[in-house]
Simulated scan of single mutants.
Amino acid sequence: MIAVGFGAEWAVRRALARTRSAVAQEDAGQAILFETVALLTFARASAGSFLAFGWPPLLRRIILTLLLAFIAFRVVRAAARLLFAFGGATSDPSDRPTPLFESEGSTRFWRWRVSLVAGFLLFGWAIASLMPGLGFSREVAGLAAFLFGLGILATAIDVVWQRPDGRGSLVKQSFLTLFLIVLWVAWVAGLLGVLWLGIFALVLPTALRGVGAAAQAFAGRSKRSGAMGVVLNVLIVRGARAAVIAAEVAWLAYIWRLRAATFAGSETGGFLIAGLLNGIIILLIADMLWQLSKALIEYRMNLAPTDGSSADELARSGRLRTLLPCS
């Protein structure tokens, strides 16, 4: 099934390669579109070959679980590759996109570590979830999950000490290592809310920078100009960042709601967490509206003539300027 998926993807990539010019290959929007089409082709072909046959129930569950893990693994690798390739691009359409990392060695380092973490996480989940159905005890399945978790911990510590672009001091690296060990202990102890909160605290700043830069490059290559171009740019860039934050907050709310229902035996904790989630979403929408208003005000002020303006125009420009932040 994986071979069928790769064969269909190879055919689609060859067909797309004929339509791509050298300039289009460096465009973030074109690259994202073609990569999405290729991955969807792989998923549809592999899943279609799976559905074409009848399977015994246990074998069906095994194959489907492993196939979903493999598809998710490829999606993570593709997202990392696109982020590293276009995450450092500028918003000027005339500029050539630059990689998120300066050297090819740094890019290879991060792609390999992302692949390791994704492999340990996804295939570890698949194998550990299948083991009870294959006759293994829950203790043995828990031990397998424990070993995969150790692999993720070892990879994360390796990133702290071996990252090629790292400039942290020995104290900072030691603190990060201790922090990762504490997160691993929280996972072993079943404190999933603490675990995910710590993971997002480490990952969110970098993820926001990378997603924002990639979205800025994508928006900068749109053909829109004028006020519509300003609106589209804000919606794409701020919307991409808001989507990342909303997804992480929603996942945290889901985890905390489960834990609150387990320990409290009531819906009070879930109600409070849902209120917190709604509040954060409202703040994200308000931030997007503010950024949109600020961008339109700046666009309107740039259109106003600076020389020979009447007193009324200068006063109107001054009133608009008071709405903008000082920095």
Rank of each mutant, 00 (worst) to 15 (best):
G7C: 04
A15F: 10
A17G: 05
A17D: 14
R20H: 06
A28Q: 05
Q30H: 07
Q30Y: 05
L39S: 07
L40E: 14
L40G: 05
S46W: 03
A47I: 11
G54H: 05
F70G: 04
F73W: 09
A80S: 11
L82S: 03
L82A: 04
L83G: 13
L83M: 09
G87A: 08
G87Y: 04
T90C: 05
T90E: 13
S94I: 06
D95Q: 15
P97W: 13
T98V: 14
P99C: 08
E102N: 12
S103T: 15
S106D: 08
R111V: 07
R111N: 07
V114I: 15
F120C: 11
L122S: 04
I127W: 08
L130T: 03
L130Q: 06
P132D: 12
G133A: 13
G133Q: 14
G135D: 13
F136Q: 12
R138T: 09
V140N: 00
F146S: 11
G151C: 12
A156C: 08
V159D: 06
V160S: 10
Q162P: 00
Q162I: 00
G168V: 00
G168F: 12
S169A: 05
V171W: 14
V171N: 13
V171L: 15
K172H: 12
F175P: 00
F175S: 11
L176A: 05
W184Y: 15
W184Q: 14
V185K: 08
A186L: 11
W187E: 05
A189Y: 00
G190K: 07
L191M: 11
V194W: 02
W196C: 01
G198T: 01
P205W: 04
A213I: 01
A214Q: 09
Q216R: 15
A217G: 03
R221E: 02
G229V: 03
L232D: 08
V234E: 13
I236M: 12
V237C: 00
V237K: 06
G239M: 03
A240E: 03
A240H: 02
A242C: 02
V244I: 15
A253S: 10
W256C: 07
W256P: 02
W256M: 11
G265M: 06
S266E: 09
S266C: 04
L272P: 01
A274S: 11
L277Q: 10
G279C: 06
I281E: 06
Q291R: 14
S293G: 02
R300Q: 14
A304V: 12
D307G: 00
S309Y: 07
D312F: 07
L314G: 00
R316H: 11
S317L: 06
